[in-house]
């Protein structure tokens, strides 16, 4: 029995009334802004039947430089049996740029979080192997941050012995 989107949002609102800041929709996509502490609980809750959001479609980060809480983590969850996509967003401040890792729940979160760490410098707590994914060891800075210049030159790193 497929469950409707309205029902999912209704249940979420009831269960996590304290941790959900806002539920909006834009261009037909549903957006749920949550507190970062509740991320794991909400994902675990939605994984269960009848919601069955078993796939992490995408995970990325956005840098809103100049705003109080600078980074925004964006998660796209997908339910195969209900054919529903939901987008979860949560804000991180620059000083406390940490969020719980989703690696215990989703295996592809491993690389996705490494990418976000590489590009934005967000730390994922509980990640087993947080290492740069696209860039190399010794790369300075995080390229997708807005304060990283487009044509910045990197220092040469010595050959490994």
């Amino acid at each position: 029995m497929a469950i409707s989107k309205e029902k999912v949002l209704e249940d979420l609102k009831q269960k996590f009334s304290d941790n959900i800041l806002e539920i909006t929709a834009q261009f037909g996509d549903d957006i749920i802004c949550i507190k970062k502490e509740a991320l794991l609980d909400i994902v675990n809750f939605l994984r269960e039947e009848p919601y069955a959001f078993t796939m992490l479609l995408d995970l990325t980060c956005v840098d809103y430089m100049g705003e109080e809480e600078r980074f925004e983590m964006v998660y796209h969850l997908f339910s195969l049996s209900n054919k529903l996509r939901l987008r979860f967003k949560t804000r991180l401040s620059e000083d406390d740029c940490k969020i719980d890792s989703l690696t215990p729940i989703f295996k592809n979160a491993n690389w996705l979080e490494r990418e976000a760490y590489d590009m934005f410098g967000v730390h994922f707590e509980g990640h087993p192997y947080l290492r740069r994914l696209f860039m190399y060891d010794g790369f300075e800075g995080h390229p997708l941050r807005k304060d990283y210049p487009l044509h910045k030159h990197q220092p040469k790193i010595p050959l490994r012995k």
Binding site: R132, L133, F134, Y136, P143, L144
Partner: peptide, 11 residues
Amino acid sequence: MGYLHRGFEKI
């Protein structure tokens, strides 16, 4: 990986 990283998202 990353040998073909061209910074698509940054560009």
